[in-house]
């Protein structure tokens, strides 16, 4: 056996190798999760359909003059709610339900033995689910535009890319927040109830059911102090071509993400120390 004199890789080589490994891991993970999600496409179609709330609210708002008082033209209003529908579709998080199920069925232990933190697996599953969801969202939008052809619009490429970036950041923030609540599963069986309760302010303050501009001033200030309005209102306003403060919006999303992230890591490691498989 020949021993090469410089078998130790240089730091650059090591970094390249790590990057290549991560890339391959990501590709395999996303590919397998996508194949898995395609099996559930009928259910994902129904999930997509159950996100019709912004479209129902569009019906109520368009019949009322209240939006015009806050400077929304009927066209802007329609586009806002359609954009809110799209943003909501791609920021739906269900990690807590998957984790609870895995924990209960004892699937978490084998996951922990693999050299990959389980949260990455859930993240890949979410992304794969969104890829499966995409065609259904396009079909629903196409149907809406068929009924209301005059509301069709194409955002400029720059706006579109910014809106995609904002939606991805919202997805990450909401994934982290729900992961934080999920980690409480290690201590309590009622973590899912907490998740349900936090959905209430999300529902009413995010802009999913009413544009933030229609809120009375005091309520609006209160809402903007929470992370919720940045989750639907900001990206939807951006995508629909409305006026937004880009720096403030992206700054808020980044700020909340940086605030939540350390707590997720902290609770994860604390939870791991506490974890004992079901039946132990």
């Amino acid at each position: 056996m020949r021993i090469r004199p410089n078998a130790r890789p240089t730091p650059l080589q090591a970094a390249l190798r790590a990057a290549r490994h991560a890339l391959r891991l990501a590709r395999v993970l996303l590919g397998s999760q996508y194949a898995l999600m395609l099996e559930y496409r009928a259910e994902i179609a129904l999930w997509a359909l159950s996100g019709v709330l912004p479209l129902i609210m569009l019906g109520v708002w368009s019949g009322s003059g209240a939006a015009a008082d806050s400077g929304f033209s009927p066209l802007q209003l329609t586009r806002y709610f359609l954009a809110a529908f799209v943003v909501r579709q791609f920021t739906i998080i269900w990690v807590i339900h998957a984790f609870e199920e895995d924990n209960l069925q004892g699937r978490l232990s084998p996951y922990l033995l693999q050299p990959l933190p389980p949260l990455w697996r859930y993240l890949a599953a979410h992304l794969a689910e969104q890829a499966t969801r995409l065609p259904f969202v396009v079909v629903i939008l196409a149907l809406v535009f068929l009924v209301l052809p005059h509301t069709f619009w194409l955002p400029s490429p720059a706006t579109f890319l910014l809106a995609v970036l904002a939606t991805l950041m919202v997805f990450l923030l909401r994934f982290l927040i729900q992961s934080l609540i999920t980690m409480l599963c290690f201590w309590s069986e009622r973590a899912a109830a907490l998740e349900r309760l936090q959905m209430i302010p999300y529902l009413f303050l995010s802009g999913l059911v009413a544009p933030l501009d229609t809120f009375p001033a005091g309520m609006r200030a209160l809402a903007y102090a929470t992370p919720f309005p940045w989750m639907i209102g900001f990206p939807a306003q951006l995508l629909s071509g409305g006026e937004v403060n880009l720096a403030l919006g992206f700054g808020a999303l980044l700020g909340w993400t940086l605030l939540v992230f350390p707590f997720v890591l902290l609770l994860w490691s604390a939870g791991m120390r506490r974890y004992a498989a079901m039946g132990a």
């Binding site: 019949g63 209240a66 009413f204 059911v209 809120f215």
Partner: peptide, 13 residues
């Protein structure tokens, strides 16, 4: 609260 938004400025629904 959401319902009250539709009744701002003395409107009806």
């Amino acid at each position: 609260f959401l319902l009250s938004l539709f009744f701002a400025n003395g409107r009806s629904l």
